[in-house]
Amino acid sequence: MEPIRTHKGVVTPLNRANVDTDQIIPKQFLKRIERQGFGQFLFYHWRFDDDGIPRKDFVLNEDKYENSTILVAGDNFGCGSSREHAPWSLEDYGFKVIIAPSFADIFYNNCVKNGILPVELKEDEVETLLKKGAEQIYSITVDLENQSVRDDQGFEASFSIPGYHKEMLLNGWDDISITLTLEEKITQFEQGA
């Protein structure tokens, strides 16, 4: 997993609440046994019509968001199914940071495990980002170390993140190797149980 410290990128505004993981990656694409290659299926039915032609009215298909790496969305992002294919597809598509007023629990964890930084901002702050992102090619800087989001037009916001998640993302850690250093304690627990 690649560490993430500070990330500057263009915002894609997805102004919808309760975006569920069935929309992020529809079920017909869950049959692969690999982790890679899911980006092409991201938001599939929102992005493409029944003939596979990109829908002009969907935000990801607009030219100005072509190289975007930061997705900004409404409340309760990633609700529903536990499918990790959702963060895999976001990551493979090129998103490094997702900003929303709130995230579903399982999705949030799945992001952290895949080096995607989920940022919770206040509703009015997210609205500002959505608005600016819709009006222009809008770059912001997300600083994990200092837990802040800023642009060069005076916007500044801070966010909180559990310390352990922050450490994992800053260092790009594989938490299984950390847990295995505690193997003796796991064995002791099993013997006591």
């Binding site: 536990s82 499918r83 990790e84 963060p87 399982i106 799945n110 352990y164 299984i176 847990t179 796991i186």
Partner: peptide
């Protein structure tokens, strides 16, 4: 509770999970 695939791997390897 439901978990993602990285957590599935973690449980397979360690029979534990980090949980707040």
């Amino acid at each position: 509770f439901g978990i993602g695939t990285s957590e599935v791997e973690h449980v397979l390897a360690t029979q534990t999970l980090w949980q707040a």
